[in-house]
Design a protein around this nucleic acid. Sequence first.
DNA 1: TATTAAAGTCACCAAGTGGTGACTAATATA
DNA 2: TATATTAGTCACCACTTGGTGACTTTAATA
Lengths: 209, 209
Amino acid sequence: MEKEAAKGIRRNKAQTKQRFLDAIEQILITKGVAALKVNDIAKVAGLDKKLIYKYFGGTEQLMDEYIRTKDFWSNVKGEKVPDAITDGGHAFVEDMLLSQFDYVAKDKAFQKLLLWRLTEQRESLKKLTDAQEANGETLLQSITDPHFGGQSTQFRSIMAVLIAGTYYLDLYAAVNGSVFCGIDLQAEQGRNEIRKALSFLLQSTYKNL
Amino acid sequence: MEKEAAKGIRRNKAQTKQRFLDAIEQILITKGVAALKVNDIAKVAGLDKKLIYKYFGGTEQLMDEYIRTKDFWSNVKGEKVPDAITDGGHAFVEDMLLSQFDYVAKDKAFQKLLLWRLTEQRESLKKLTDAQEANGETLLQSITDPHFGGQSTQFRSIMAVLIAGTYYLDLYAAVNGSVFCGIDLQAEQGRNEIRKALSFLLQSTYKNL
DNA sequence: TATTAAAGTCACCAAGTGGTGACTAATATA
DNA sequence: TATATTAGTCACCACTTGGTGACTTTAATA
């Protein structure tokens, strides 16, 4: 019983597993976490739910595998650390912050993941969080900590506020009337105001901290 | 059939309705929105679910009434606008921001409401949002707009980022390992760093904008 | 005290939920 | 080609879900 190495044949375990993972994402995006039920997942995947138990062990494990296998780093990947940093990472951090603001706005699945993480404790989500933290820690240590020295913790707190701010605003914009503090978060003009605010706050930090 | 004016008697419609509303809050706090099911609500309230349909029309309406009747303004109420403002509202806004940061951390029910609002579109939640916006608008127009003049929109964007930041950090702290950007959001020390960050960013805004 | 309206209970239903055992169908190898 | 193995289907189960009609119990008032 050799594997067929996933050709486009009728019966293919790997392909079928992927179909379920795709179904998860589709439902997540369109209906949210609460709609992730076995019967519906199978319906969307166009396959029998029995296979979910056979291949993943159950819905929970399927969801975990989705979280584990989804690539959330495409936005960060492009951000290679420049060779020489002369501004304490100002330009780099600003770019990261702004592109994150745009990335989260676009990736509906990632939005749901953020929300999911605020709603439920789940090992696979915790893993994702830890990975994000570890990734950030590396950047902070290599780029900004040296520049801010004794104030590095204060800088981290500021970054926490700014990043948290972009997350919340993107999540808020996706659901509500989207006007927050009088700023229309769905309009390009409003989003530009937020970008300017982020840049301003970061600039002030680099100047005054 | 006169009303008994809600004495502590055995059969009392008003009291019974309140019991259901209390049950909603309890479940919301302990298990989250997803756990708001008719049978469970009735069980927690210690009454028959039929009464939910009789008195409210159904679970949906009961939830709506909970959202409508809960007082979310206790944190803002204390914040009476001072008579004379000479600092462009700096002290007032700072106090508002910091006390909001603490209020949201404490009120578990409000946290769930914030989350709910990011998860689902619901008329009663929209109403709550609109009320918040209207309230904020009044403050912005009377206090900060005059001070910032042509930059008032930019100031609003900054406030949006800062408020959104406190919301997200409080929500995040309530669920996860609670370390965000290397800051421990459950430890008093970490929360103090965030407070300092908020104050610093606001101060910079008042100085440099 | 008898009557009546409302408060509250209970048994029951239909639809949806997660989950499984027994089956059929395809396919790799002996 | 025969056979074992795995992919995939299907019918079915027990339980939970939202929801209701028929009932009993309380208590205000004629």
